[in-house]
Design a protein around this nucleic acid. Structure first.
Lengths: 256, 256
DNA sequence: GAGTGGTCTAGACCACGCG
DNA sequence: GCGTGGTCTAGACCACTCA
């Protein structure tokens, strides 16, 4: 018995469900299934309108939903394009390490402590939902400001492909970039857990601090379109140097 | 010499600036100036359209901008209403203490340690940008789960009105609520700063923990429409019990 | 200049809330 | 039943990009 294809790419103009929403779901599915890959252009609006026999304004409404979902961006005169999800921005303003440090008038730096192929131990196998002893790529690094260590990072990604480790990926060793290169799907969502803690001996040593140093511990897991974890990392931030700031509410320009 | 009224409530249909954006700014200004107060209804869409001689679709576009800015919400069949800004939600999922604790199957509780009128010391005068010795309302409380202290909070609001302290405001002792009652303007934006630290002796005592307890320190400042601080608070969260989780990226239902 | 997205119009019909 | 917002149409003109 063959099951009926679910979510056919057909719009029911007389459904209770708004047309723009049906179209939104169709386009979303195409993107998540990889039929439309990040960077690719969507068909022109008038073409979509014609294809489904609906008004261009309705098409635009659907696309504007994709835009606010962050899945699509638009370029006047060129087209609508599938976005590359940015998973390494922080909800709190920890955004871009280099920019942040430079904004404060300091010299940012990073040092690679090691890049290795390792076998998953119990903890890692659990985090990445893979078998014990599966091969993973392990990256250790320290981020610093004015040559003073601020962050200690450990990152792991599933290492299925036999791809060699390219310079390219060490220039942008963000979890989502690493996962993009080594996974079959691209990452679409990331989970972060922030804890307050006290540095372990190893962490205190690498960060060059004394004992009883308060630290932020940030765990990040990135997932692909099928909700499988494809990367996991743990970062230790010096608590005496790092503050996370956020603003909530109605905008009204800036507050210093 | 009389200066020309800036930002007149007139729309230039032939301006380079889109009509919907001009209207958005007009409505935003009316809200921030208090001509439209939280809870009040905006004029019906067709009325706005008629007033400015523009299409209703364009009015809707302007209002949809207000909605995504969180300043307006819409009720089908009733109207569009000015929203009350929610400033006590966390960017990280610290949202509502009671709900969060209950969701984890524990019994939430809160204990008032004290409500006082105090005179501003140097620190407080700086935080609230008021004069030394100005009168402030000071609230101290402890939030707990299953009778175990989890959070220690200190909150201060400017105390200009001679209003007595009502039971009402102690039932919702959120900074934005307190500030709403005692200030002239309502709060529209709040700033939070999160730090990792180690509990002071006083904090450890109140939270019932040992020394060297890692804690989150959360400072919150709420501002009114004129960007003047009207409330300030400092909360201490037990780091061994509290994690902050956030998700970033394309939605795709939930991840556990 | 051809193709694209951005804006805007002047209608239309619907479902919902309320008296 | 009336007023409201939600959706949708079939056009239109513009500014932009790129060849």
């Amino acid at each position: 018995m063959k099951s009926i294809t679910p979510h056919e790419e057909i719009i029911d103009k007389y459904s209770i469900i708004p047309i723009y929403y049906q179209l939104f779901k169709i386009l979303e599915k195409n993107i998540l299934d990889g039929k439309l890959k990040p960077g690719e252009a969507l068909p022109p609006e008038h073409e979509i309108a014609e294809k489904y026999g609906i008004s261009r304004m309705t098409v635009r409404r659907a696309i504007s939903e994709l835009i606010s979902a962050g899945m699509v961006y638009s370029q006047k005169g060129k087209g609508n394009f599938v976005a590359r999800p940015k998973l390494d921005d922080f909800a709190f303003e920890l955004v871009n390490f280099y920019e942040e440090i430079q904004k404060r008038g300091m010299k940012p730096g990073s040092k690679l402590l090691g890049v290795k192929i390792v076998r998953a131990d119990e903890l890692l196998a659990g985090k990445l939902e893979i078998d014990l002893n599966a091969t993973c790529l392990h990256i250790r690094m320290v981020l610093s400001a004015d040559d003073e260590p601020l962050v200690y990072e450990n990152k792991y990604v599933v290492y299925t492909k036999q791809k060699p480790i390219l310079e390219n990926e060490l220039k942008d060793p963000s979890l989502s970039n690493l996962a993009t290169i080594h996974g079959d799907h691209f990452p679409i969502i990331s989970k972060r857990v922030l804890q307050a803690s006290i540095a372990t001996e190893e962490e205190a040593l690498i960060l060059g601090t004394g004992l009883n140093m308060p630290v932020f511990v940030v765990e990040q897991t990135v997932y692909d379109t099928e909700k499988k974890p494809i990367g996991w990392g743990k970062s230790i931030y010096r608590g005496d140097r790092y503050k996370l700031t956020s603003y909530i509410g109605w905008s009204v320009d800036d507050i210093s």
